[in-house]
Design a protein around this nucleic acid. Structure first.
Length: 395
DNA sequence: AACTTGACCAACCGCAGCTTT
DNA sequence: AAAAGCTGCGGTTGGTCAAGT
């Protein structure tokens, strides 16, 4: 019945389940369960995450008694249990976006998912593979004509491939002197590449840094090269401390969320959630956008990974100032709100959408409050763009 | 009604990259 | 510097269901 044999397969090998391989047995040799999750298991996992936050997936079994390997727990959480997940079929807008993103990035599902709030890489991947199959059978091109130009293989040759074959296009033009545009740039770990140059929030109206541009036309309108999007998943940032002493931690180091006591009352809402301390004006014109320049983006995407490492510790001071308003123990990726409508609705405009994602991305870098609060705080992280507007307004 | 096919979905696997020891 | 551990990503597999034959 179930494709996942709970006995035989697990007896093979002796993997601890803590590495990237099969989840066959726990650290103590206990047989780990595979296959579909039960409601009870879901509940246990939910409770665990509420209590300890995300990360430390290999501890789930240890502390919750759940007989699942860490990988399985992470996957279950990311794809099914985490708040704000959208269920159901993709909307036409989402489908369109997927096409565009795939034309740009290739099979970078996580990257695409980062730009589709509430959607998981797995969903997108499944959707795409299904689409590939269908289009192939129908003899249709993968991309509509108006999107094909985005594709690096804009030769308009239908990119029909086996669904099991990576659909990452090749780049026949690269040898023809075109600007290399890799849809599958070097894969960046969310936090290994995080460090696209951050803008200096008090800098002159514009500047360039390395190959990226950041323009700052007025305090409430700016563009910057979006960082490499990340999945709304826990980040690998173990810790970070800037020159001002700001520290950033994930649950990996601090499984139990620290108390909020250390924050001033105006940093915490009644519900204990963080609020931006400045005079936040929700009526501020929605004129903060990102300048989404694929070429610029590209240039950074191809940045050697080593660079990012060096940049981790050189956040501009002004950004650090901004970040200082964000409690280090806040623990909430962008989806930490049970109001999906709200979350999605805040990212309506195309440009704001990008910014929103970026800010959510940024937000996801910071662990938020007690995880028990998630779902009760629709205004915690999803409003980071607005938070920034408030910041700009007051600076 | 039984069978086939396609779409959708959930979950596993292996690998790679990063962090920690 | 190397090994071990952890996490995330992309590819793949296989079950379920609905529509078609």
């Amino acid at each position: 019945m179930t494709p996942y044999n709970n006995g035989s397969a697990q007896s093979e090998g002796g993997s601890s389940g803590s590495s990237g391989g099969k989840c066959v047995s726990g650290p103590d040799g206990a047989i780990l369960k595979k296959g579909p999750w039960t409601a009870a298991e879901d509940h246990v996992l939910m409770e665990y995450v509420k209590k300890h936050g995300e990360g430390n997936w290999n501890s789930v079994q240890k502390y919750s008694g759940l007989n699942r390997c860490g990988k399985s727990c992470r996957l279950r959480w990311a794809n099914h249990l985490r708040p704000n997940l959208k269920k159901g079929s993709f909307t036409p807008e989402e489908e369109r976006l997927i096409l565009e993103l795939h034309a740009k990035y290739g099979n970078k599902w996580a990257r695409m998912a980062a730009q589709l709030p509430g959607r998981t890489d797995n969903e997108i991947k499944n959707y795409w593979n299904t689409r590939v199959k269908r289009r192939k059978r129908q003899g249709l091109p993968l991309y509509p004509h108006d999107i094909q130009h985005l594709s690096p293989t804009s030769s308009l040759t239908p990119i029909i491939q086996s669904p099991t074959t990576p659909t990452t296009p090749s780049f026949p033009f690269q040898s023809q002197g075109h600007v290399p545009f890799s849809p599958t740039p070097p894969s960046h770990s969310p936090m290994s590449s995080p460090i696209q140059p951050f803008p200096s929030l008090t800098s002159p109206s514009s500047f360039e840094h390395n190959n990226s541009s950041f323009t700052f036309s007025n305090p409430s309108s700016f563009t910057f090269q979006r960082p490499v999007p990340v999945l709304g998943a826990p980040v690998r940032f173990k810790s970070f401390r800037d020159s001002n002493g700001f520290s950033l931690q994930t649950q990996q180091q601090s499984p139990c969320p620290p108390s909020l006591d250390q924050y001033t009352p105006n940093q915490l809402s009644d519900s204990g959630c963080f609020q931006f301390p400045l005079n936040f004006d929700p009526t501020l014109p929605q004129n903060i956008g990102t300048h989404f320049d694929s070429e610029l983006m590209n240039s950074s995407e191809t940045m050697p990974k080593q660079e990012s490492k060096g940049q981790v510790n050189c956040l501009p001071e002004d950004l650090s100032k901004l970040l200082n308003f964000v409690p280090a123990n806040l623990q909430a990726p962008e989806w930490y709100s049970d109001n999906s409508e709200n979350s999605n609705g805040q990212c309506l405009g195309v440009t704001d959408h990008n910014l929103c994602l970026d800010m959510q991305h940024l937000a996801s870098l910071f662990p938020i409050a007690s995880a028990a609060d998630y779902g009760q705080n629709p205004a915690s992280w999803d409003n980071l763009p607005d938070i920034c507007k408030g910041w700009f307004k007051n600076n």
